[in-house]
Amino acid sequence: MTRRMLGRLANPQLLALVGVLLINWLLFPSFFRVTWQDGRLFGSVIDVLNRGAPVAILSIGMVGVIATKGVDLSVGAVMAVAGAVAASLVVAGYPAPVAVIAALLVGLLCGLWNGFLVAVLDIQPIVATLVLMVAGRGIAQLITQGFIVTFNDPLLIFIGTGSFLGLPMATVIALVLLVLVTLLVRKTAIGLFIEAVGVNRAAASLAGIRSRMLLILVYALSGLCAAIAGIIVAGDIRGADANNAGLWLELDAILAVVIGGTSLLGGRFSVPLAVVGALIIQAMNTGILVSGFPPEFNLIVKAGMIILILLIQSPLATRIAPRRPQRARIGVQRTAK
């Protein structure tokens, strides 16, 4: 039992995360120093958890979509829309809970729209979600009329920058979502259904899975997650920046899912490992910030690290240095846990 647990922990994603954190520690010796300040934890590791939360939340939604052989390019734009809705409503005088719920509903609606295009109209996911990726930012700009809508609402600011039990609120929200979604897909049959649809939608339908409903569900979840991330990002800077909120984060979310070992071809997926992927990306970002590299190197360092991490996970690396020799020997293909 213990050995199996240890075996589970020794997967390449967690090793990569530990590796990146160790590199950060070598570059910046007080990387792991955490202090207690103003009723919250304070330190670089906390920054990784806090700043990584939006992409982690996006990747929780994205992993289900990618497991169905789809992709959701619109999440960055949906973040901007949700932030714009929440900010505009509180500025217009609506109570904050109403603004938050409205923003979440708008995100859900965006997800349902994507799901409708993909599942009902059978448009390829990359094209279907590209529509909202482009239009969404325009919608957000329309809502904010091109301004950065700033607000002083305590609830929205709490969601973005508050803390719960010393942990940043964004981290707590990501953690709760992680647990809920993991339970949803692993303690019910939904996870298996998603994998079945991702491997072969026609076969899954013939086997009695309502694949259309399932697709709409995963895109709706992705939209909802994007809205949550959007509210957090807006609360963080006390303003909705339609031009920049969530810009390119869809790519970070897809990368996090891929680093987490989920195949873009659908099927096998893991929600916790996607979150680990998001943390790896953020650990690199934070590491670059505290290490003092010139900014010209940011993207090169990131790209180099990511290639390395993907290489470690590749079938080639598994052949050269088998991670689980007993399985490799008897030729059992790794399947979903």
Binding site: I237, T286, L289
Partner: peptide
């Protein structure tokens, strides 16, 4: 002492400054 890109945006400016503060003795 330190120079990093914040991409001209509020959120990146905040994130980079957080990193700088940690790196420069709180």
């Amino acid at each position: 002492a330190r120079s990093q890109t914040g991409d001209f945006t509020r959120s990146k400016g905040k994130e980079v400054m957080e990193g700088f503060i940690k790196a420069e003795n709180g």
